[in-house]
Amino acid sequence: MTRDEISALLPFLANGTLEGTERAEVQDAVTHDPELAAELEALKAVRATIQAEESYSPGEMGLARLMRDVDAETQAANANRRPLIWQIAAAILLALVVGQTVWQFTDSGPGGYQLAGDTPPAFTAAFRDDVTEAELRSLLLEAGVEIVSGPSALGLYALAPLEGVTREEARAELEASDLVETLETAETPD
C-alpha cells in the first residue's frame, strides 16, 4: 500500500470501520510514521466534534407528519380497492344468475328450450312482421294456445292448446286471424 493509499484510509481507521489486513497495515504505518499519527489524531478530533454537534431534527413532529401521511395513503389504497371488491361481487352474482338461467333452459327437456312445460306443440305458426306483442298476446288468449318454443331462425313459433281447448278450436281461431301468415300442423314426436 502506498503512503497516499494509507492516508486515504486514515478516516476509516479513525471511525473504526477498517478491518482485517487493511486495518493492520494502516495501523502499522501510523505506528511508524509520526506525521500519519498526528493526522489520525486530528481526524479523530474532527470526528468527535462532528458527532458532538447538536442537530435539531424534526423528531416527534416529523414522526406525527409521517404517520398522518402513511394513514392517508393506506386509506386511499383501501378506498381504491373497495370498488374492485364490488366488481368481483357483482361478477359472481351475474355468474350465478346466468348459470341458473342456463341450467333451467338446458334442464327443461329434450329438443331445445321450451317456454311452457312439457306440452308437445300442435301447430307451427308464423305471424305478420308488424304484429305487436299486445296483438299477439290477445290472439293467443282468444285461440286458447300458448307458445311452447320459438321463434326459430325462420320466425316460426310452436304452439300448443291450453288445457280444455281442443286442437280444432284453436286452429279455427288462428286461421280466422289476419295476424297469422302461415299455420301448419306440428309433427308429433315419437
Binding site: 506525521e35 498526528a38 493526522e39 481526524l43 478530533a45 474532527v46 466534534t49
Partner: peptide, 19 residues
Amino acid sequence: DAETCLTAGQEAEHVRYCI
C-alpha cells in the same frame, strides 16, 4: 500542520465552517 489541525478540529465552529 497536523498539530494546528488537531486544535482547530476541536472547535465546532471551525469544523462546521470548513465542512
